[in-house]
Design a protein around this nucleic acid. Structure first.
Lengths: 193, 193
DNA sequence: AGATAAAAAATGAACGTTCATTCATTTTCT
DNA sequence: AGAAAATGAATGAACGTTCATTTTTTATCT
């Protein structure tokens, strides 16, 4: 798979088409031929950019995951106090999950199914380190309950995935007020005392 | 599709095999031929019990969902005080999600992908009514925050799905102590004041 | 009870389709 | 003109589903 020099356009179109089809139809009903058609590209072209279908979906996952974490930490500064830092990160994550639905849905599907190879998934998690560091700091100074990172994640970040899905399916709409309540619920579940 | 009279055994074996294969390989890599083999049945036999592959997975979903809710409410009595009722239900749900991994994983996958037809999914949700009634009571008496049911679900039940997955993937183990912490986090996120 | 026939259930090879992937050819860029 | 990129028809494998046949169960009669 020789590195192609330009035309990151076609690659992006393929990434976008893969997300859209997997979101709407599921992995099992997202054939290469349709992905190609949606990206305005010939089926054969996909194999200039990706090894095969599994590699395609792996790469899309990694790319979307790193866009997500970059977005999450964009306005965060490790010098912030714990509570403020948490609020900043949480609200960026919420903004991402609720506005970039396409990307968030794709991640949710990948994280809850075996379609992504396990080593690739592990790699996608690494970018989350700043949040884990913040939690470590919070636990040390006593502002955050001394719980496993998995529990902290389950009660603060994961609920947003569920709310995103419900919004996407049209049964629930989250506005400014609901977002503030949701943030409080998140903070209340992990803050000390 | 005439009703078959006996041999609910074969049907159960098919349900079990479908869950196992979809959990381990994903829907796209769970062909009818493998499902049949795992259930010790001929491929043709599947079509005596189910219309087609979509119907098979729909029915498995409905069946597992109703086993789940039956389990959740088994020890609950609507006459219980709100906080006690919530604790009873929450802990049953936790028990189910953490012990019946096969079933819980399958539900998580179905709820986060488009593999289940939307009307069928809607039907599966109906059995959750007792919990919604409890929350209504809690909001009216002021013991539970006046939040949307979706937010309450996101912060109390959904985290368990995430923790179940992490336990299943071997990166996290939830014991008696963690379970108690998790319950407190859940209750803290939705209790009033 | 045992024998026999009719009905029900189960089988698995066969069918038509669709899929991922390849590669000889064409198009676009340098 | 030469190299790089893109094409899309062709290929073989795998899939969901069917149905003519076989096996098992049930019902009936001696």
């Amino acid at each position: 798979m020789a590195q192609l020099q330009k035309c990151t356009d076609k690659r992006n179109a393929l990434v976008q088409a893969t997300m859209e089809l997997v979101n709407n139809n599921g992995f099992h009903a997202a054939p290469m031929s349709k992905i190609a058609k949606m990206a305005n590209v010939s089926p054969g072209t996909i194999y200039l950019y990706f090894e095969n279908k599994q590699d395609l979906v792996n790469q899309v996952y990694l790319e979307v995951k790193s866009v997500f974490t970059a977005y999450a930490f964009e306005t965060y500064d490790p010098k912030m106090p714990v509570e403020q830092g948490f609020e900043v990160i949480w609200k960026r994550i919420a903004e991402f999950k609720l506005n970039k639905c396409q990307e968030a849905m794709f991640l949710a599907q990948c994280d809850n199914t075996p379609i992504i190879d396990e080593p690739i998934r592990q790699e996608g998690i690494k970018h989350l380190q700043p949040l884990l560091d913040l939690w470590k700091r919070g636990k040390e100074e006593g502002s955050i309950k001394p719980l496993s990172d998995y529990i902290l994640y389950a009660y603060t970040v994961n609920p947003l995935s569920f709310l995103m899905l419900m919004q996407q399916r049209g049964v629930f709409k989250i506005g400014k007020k609901e977002l503030e309540s949701a943030y409080l619920a998140a903070w209340n579940s992990i803050k000390s005392e």
